[in-house]
């Protein structure tokens, strides 16, 4: 997981036209930009914000699924879920490291997450009520993340692109294990099938929102496209996602909760009904069911881990001193 359309990027920049043109020429030639290269401030700021949001999403995204690890229905499912959640932790770490190459510290990013200045994907502010939610998250939420992340493998900023290549290699298992959970439920009892449909009903629209606002309302998106941070628009990616997942739902014998969802021969894709953007913004701004709990859990982990970080540093100092003393003898 879990990039979502960037929330609130600020691509403003005030370098000379010559500098910007030279930079744009490098981007247009598909050259990768590396951390120590000269770059417009707006490019740096946009990337710090986007990679930071992406990293936070991976880490916060461990919580809704972590909620089910001890209650997984079999040892196989438990092992798979544990491995998936561990992967998400790894994704967060690759991404924090990529952001840090731009001159922001891990501590700063963590503080921004905990005090609410930094956002994370709003999908994680929904609760995971049943085991079918774990299947649906793997299938749809990781599925949406894959749609977002594949083009990011070609992002103009080298460290972000390289992190995305690692992430994408690992995501495929996430989506497949989720879909397999759904398949098992849909081939099971009526109660299991109902549970699967209920989960799809609750996760479908939030998954579509993961791609961010419609292109017409998406501020700063053009600048990100011009800098080749972004390769496809929010609506293009959302359309790809719908076209891929509606037949997958049909295969399961489930129905997406959108009466207006139907195949449009002329455009060669599915049409969909209106997305409730009021809900999206409400949840982004903190009004989701789980916003408080997610941040509280991250804050607790950070605070409870403080003594471990301190002890490890003190221990490292002590070992260094001991080594130096031994060398001096």
């Amino acid at each position: 997981m879990y990039a979502q359309g960037l929330i609130g990027a600020d691509g403003r920049t005030d370098e000379t036209p010559e500098f910007l043109a030279a930079f744009k020429a490098r981007i247009d030639a598909e050259e990768k930009i590396e951390p120590k290269d000269a770059m417009p401030e707006g490019y740096r700021r946009t990337l710090i914000r986007q990679i930071g949001q992406h990293a936070h999403s991976e880490i916060v995204g461990m919580l809704p699924e972590g909620n089910w690890i001890t209650r997984a229905p079999s040892l196989k499912r438990k092992a798979a879920l544990l491995a998936k959640v561990q992967d998400e932790g790894g994704h967060g770490l690759y991404l924090y490291a990529a952001a840090e190459t731009l001159g922001v510290s891990r501590e700063e990013m963590t503080e921004e997450l905990l005090d609410g200045r930094a956002k994370y994907s709003s999908i994680f502010n929904y609760p995971t009520l049943t085991w079918a939610d774990i299947g649906t998250i793997g299938w749809l939420v990781d599925g949406a993340a894959i749609m977002n992340q594949i083009p990011l493998c070609r992002c103009s900023f080298g460290p972000y692109a390289r992190a995305m290549i690692r992430v994408c290699k690992e995501e495929s298992f996430h989506q497949r294990q989720g879909y397999e959970i759904m398949l098992t439920l849909c081939r099971g009892t009526q109660a299991q099938k109902d549970m699967a449909q209920d989960a799809l009903n609750r996760w479908w629209w939030p998954s579509l929102m993961m791609f961010g606002p419609h292109d017409a309302d998406s501020t700063h998106s053009d600048q990100s496209m011009a800098w080749k941070i972004k390769r496809f628009s929010n609506d293009e990616l959302r359309q790809k996602f719908i076209d891929a997942t509606v037949p997958q739902a049909e295969f399961l014998g489930l129905t997406v909760p959108d009466p207006e969802c139907k195949w449009n021969e002329a455009k060669g894709g599915y049409d969909h009904g209106p997305i409730d953007w009021d809900e999206f913004w409400r949840v982004v701004k903190g009004g989701g069911v789980m916003n408080r709990e997610r941040i509280a859990a991250r804050k607790k982990a950070w605070d409870d881990g403080a003594w471990v970080r301190e002890a490890a540093l003190v221990h490292a100092e002590k070992r260094k001193a001991r080594k130096a003393a031994m060398a001096a003898e």
Partner: peptide
């Protein structure tokens, strides 16, 4: 080079590198 990570000392850095970069 595969990336970077934070760790207090070289022993912790090695085990973190194993967990973060070699899960498969």
């Amino acid at each position: 080079h595969v990336g970077s990570l934070h760790a207090a000392d070289e022993a912790l850095a090695l085990s973190a590198a194993r967990d973060v970069y070699t899960r498969r």
